[in-house]
């Protein structure tokens, strides 16, 4: 029992520093929700219904932008497609877990939880479960609290500050930090160029066309290397 308690404490301590980069993100999301054609409560509910910062920001920005609901949802789900990789990588560790934990644990599988828990997938099942739940619940509580707080203090910020611009800045930072090889930079530039050229398509569907162009370039490039 003491060992479980230590594992839980370890999980919480490991999670806290990884939450720091999410704080400006929570703030930007809060500002976006306040400017969106949604009630603050519905906007905040995305923090626990979807529970994924980049996809929440994608969905709510596109909805505020007048995109069709289908296009906005599609874009948010494409942003979240990377979770399939996490799910596949952790599936063997989850095979030794009870059914309730496979259902509940899946909900908490965000980038940071994956990064921490994939390193401990060979722990004994009870310890893995304790560590996973400790990191998962820590991030979840902090994220719901931080986005809620951002929505509450957001209205005190004057609109002349142009804080809406924090959204493209945050996404730019995410693009750049996700690029580890030049073909990914090329894919990002192609996606940007095609989206720009397709800006007049209805319901903001140029975004999906641009994203598809970048992904197709990646597939063609990787295919040509074989």
């Amino acid at each position: 029992m003491t060992s479980t308690r230590q594992t839980v404490r370890r999980g919480i301590i490991d999670a806290l520093p990884l939450f720091i980069p999410a704080i400006p993100f929570a703030f930007v999301l809060g500002v976006t929700i306040l400017h969106a054609p949604l009630s603050a409560l519905v906007g905040w509910s995305s923090s626990w219904v979807i529970y994924g910062g980049a996809s929440q920001l994608t969905l709510i920005t596109l909805l505020s932008d007048g995109a069709a609901v289908a296009a906005a949802v599609m874009a948010a789900l494409i942003v979240n497609a990377r979770h399939l990789m996490y799910s596949a990588a952790l599936a063997p560790a989850f095979q030794q877990q009870p059914a309730w934990f496979r259902w509940v644990g899946s909900y908490f599988l965000i980038d940071q939880v994956f990064a921490l828990c994939v390193l401990r997938k060979h722990l004994p099942p009870e310890e893995f479960r304790a560590y996973y739940l400790a990191t998962g619940l820590t991030f979840w509580l902090l994220w719901c609290a931080a986005t809620g707080l951002a929505i509450i203090i957001g209205p005190t910020i004057p609109s002349e500050w142009g804080l809406g611009f924090t959204v493209p800045v945050m996404f730019t930072a995410l693009v750049v930090m996700g690029i580890d090889r030049w073909p990914k930079a090329a894919a990002a530039l192609i996606a940007a160029a095609v989206t720009f050229l397709a800006a007049d398509l209805p319901h903001r569907s140029g975004l999906l066309l641009g994203a598809a162009a970048g992904i197709v370039f990646g597939l063609l490039y990787e295919g040509s290397r074989k």
Binding site: A54, T61, A75, V175, A185, T195, L207, G218, L219
Partner: peptide
């Protein structure tokens, strides 16, 4: 649990992040 992600899909997923987010930045600016 016993299936692998097909190779083409995992390659495509590598490019999803940079492509979608870059497209999103442009969509926001325009």
């Amino acid at each position: 649990a016993n299936r692998r992600i097909p190779h083409g899909v995992s390659v495509a997923m590598e490019y999803v992040g940079p492509s979608v987010l870059a497209a999103l930045v442009v969509a926001l600016l325009t």
